[in-house]
């Protein structure tokens, strides 16, 4: 293609956005609205995912040892548990530390219940808290720990707790939330594409005459298609950029207004910096793709004689 032809296509692409004022307005509006809704849902999905991950990461395994277990046995158990592949962190909590933690938890007022207990007559067992790499693996790891316990003549472990039952439900909920997020984003993307391709098709029908005359004077199909392509791309890129900026700006405002209210509910909104790259990438790519694809597909339809 000649350079002068390319500049001509650019010029025509720009011009026709103005010339077809109402049609362009319709395309821009439908891309804008679709992306706006989509953007809001992407941000929601981000936050739901973050909350789910946050809750999941709090899942730990607690191993309570028998109070009469000897130090050698405890060290042996600790080594064996530490050798399990999935274990990312193993914290040893001695009887004294356990008492200390218990005191803190019960607070000033109830603290007197524990008065009189010291290192001599500490009723608490040694405990391990265990973090695992994948929170979903807690049950497997807990089973492995039980197997270790069973390998001793008298089990040195009195209990292995990871919130049996509760954890399974929690994972079900977080999984459902994630899936719902993906599904909603996918459905909205498809709706956006359909909506916009329909608008662009209307634009093309309105310009069938123009295309017919272009063919009559001997314009090649590529020549006819280019300005439409550029027009679609321009509408897509500009609209999606503006929409993304608006959505992120609005999100920033929401964070500033509600972060204190929400933090009481153990719930923290993802900061704008965190969500910006992926959100803008998704929205701008989708918007541009919709604009280009919509115009290319609809023009191709009317180029066939």
């Amino acid at each position: 293609m000649k350079f002068s032809t390319l500049t001509r296509h650019m010029r025509e692409g720009f011009k026709s956005i103005w010339r077809n004022g109402w049609m362009s307005f319709a395309s821009i509006t439908s891309i804008f609205i679709s992306l706006l809704i989509l953007g809001v849902f992407i941000l929601l999905a981000f936050n739901m995912n973050a909350v789910a991950a946050q809750i999941e990461s709090q899942v730990q395994i607690r191993v309570y040892l028998e109070t009469d277990a000897s130090d050698e046995v405890i060290a042996d158990v600790q080594r064996k548990i530490g050798n399990i592949e999935q274990v990312s962190k193993l914290t040893y909590i001695s009887k004294e530390e356990g008492l200390e933690i218990l005191r803190e938890r019960m607070g000033e007022e109830n603290g007197n219940w524990l008065e009189g207990y010291d290192s001599e007559n500490n009723p608490l067992p040694v405990t391990f808290t265990i973090d695992v790499f994948d929170p979903k693996q807690v049950k497997t790891v807990a089973d492995q720990i039980n197997t270790i316990a069973a390998s001793y003549e008298t089990s040195p472990i009195s209990d292995v707790k990871y919130g049996q039952g509760t954890v399974e439900t929690l994972f079900k909920i977080t999984n459902a939330v994630r899936t719902a997020g993906y599904v909603i984003v996918a459905v909205l993307s498809i709706t956006a594409i359909l909506l916009i391709s329909n608008t662009i098709r209307m634009t093309i029908v309105a310009r069938q005459r123009e295309i017919g005359i272009m063919k009559m004077v001997g314009a090649t199909n590529a020549f006819i298609r280019w300005p439409f392509f550029i027009e679609g791309a321009l509408i897509g890129v500009i609209t999606s950029t503006v929409t993304t900026a608006l959505v992120l700006f609005g999100y920033d405002r929401v964070i500033k207004a509600f972060q204190y209210d929400l933090s009481f509910m153990m719930f923290q909104l993802q900061p704008v910096k965190e969500v910006m790259p992926l959100t803008s990438l998704m929205m701008i790519l989708l918007g541009s793709f919709i604009g280009i694809w919509g115009s290319v597909v609809s023009v191709r339809k009317y180029l066939k004689v």
């Binding site: 000649k2 005459r209 001997g218 314009a219 020549f223």
Partner: peptide
Amino acid sequence: RLLPKLTVYENVAFAMEAIEAPR
């Protein structure tokens, strides 16, 4: 069959642009 949104000049020049004649 003229294009209503183009001027007289543009309507004619259009046919030459279509065959990629120099400006």
